[in-house]
């Protein structure tokens, strides 16, 4: 465990907490893409099946359980408890266009053709694009609440910090995982436009509003 990875994980955890608090406190999930949240639930479910087979550390187990549980909790809040506030008219991204290619790619490009390994690879590919419905929703409405922007910034920072972690591990531990690195790069690149708007607008106290 190095500092980049620790901060990456904490940033990921912070993103989840911000999102749950936003929904809970405002009793509303307006501006949040339920499609992205469903994708995240699929991502963590397929990736963390190794909870049953491999023990790495108490930290690892704890975080995995938290990520799986909170992803389902978010989906529950959006589609059941605060269903009335869900922005379904704007959340129209077709997630099968992300799931199907991720499945095919995982079947073709993987390190080992076993059920767990293909599911892990699928989750890595799917995670890299899972934020697209959320970014699509923001572009459709043309704006995002500050709290939603903070959520997106924390969530985007997590994989960016993992990239630094992978650079560090490559040199310090002679360790690398090409599938995770390439997918992590894609994932981080997708946030670049948002990062730019966040730094130039939200941090200066303005609302994130896209040019008309």
């Amino acid at each position: 465990m190095n500092i980049f990875r620790l901060f990456g994980d904490l940033s990921h955890l912070l993103a989840i907490i911000i999102l749950l608090l936003k929904i809970w406190k405002t009793r509303s999930c307006a501006g949040i893409s339920g499609k992205s949240q469903i994708l995240f639930a699929i991502v963590y479910t397929s990736r963390y099946l190794d909870l049953m087979t491999t023990y790495i550390s108490a930290y690892n187990t704890f975080m995995k359980i938290v990520f799986v549980a909170t992803s389902y909790a978010t989906v529950f809040l959006m589609y059941m408890k605060f269903k009335a506030t869900y922005d379904r008219n704007h959340d129209t991204f077709r997630i099968e266009f992300l799931i199907v290619p991720a499945v095919i790619l995982a079947l073709v490009i993987n390190q080992e053709f076993t059920v767990l390994e293909v599911l892990w690879t699928f989750s890595i590919y799917l995670e890299s694009v899972a934020i697209l419905p959320q970014l699509f929703l923001v572009s459709k409405t043309g704006e995002a609440e500050s709290i939603t922007s903070h959520y997106l910034f924390a969530l985007g920072s997590y994989r960016a910090l993992y990239l630094l972690n992978w650079v560090y591990r490559y040199y310090a531990e002679d360790h690398y995982d090409l599938i995770a690195i390439v997918a992590g790069l894609v994932q981080t690149v997708l946030y670049c436009d948002f990062f730019y708007l966040y730094i130039t607008k939200v941090l200066k106290g303005k609302k994130l509003q896209l040019p008309a």
Binding site: D9, T54, N60, M63, K64, Q111, W120, H175, D177
Partner: peptide, 10 residues
């Protein structure tokens, strides 16, 4: 360099 299969990251 070792290719990792253990997936010790999150």
């Amino acid at each position: 360099t070792v290719i990792d299969h253990s997936h010790d990251e999150l």
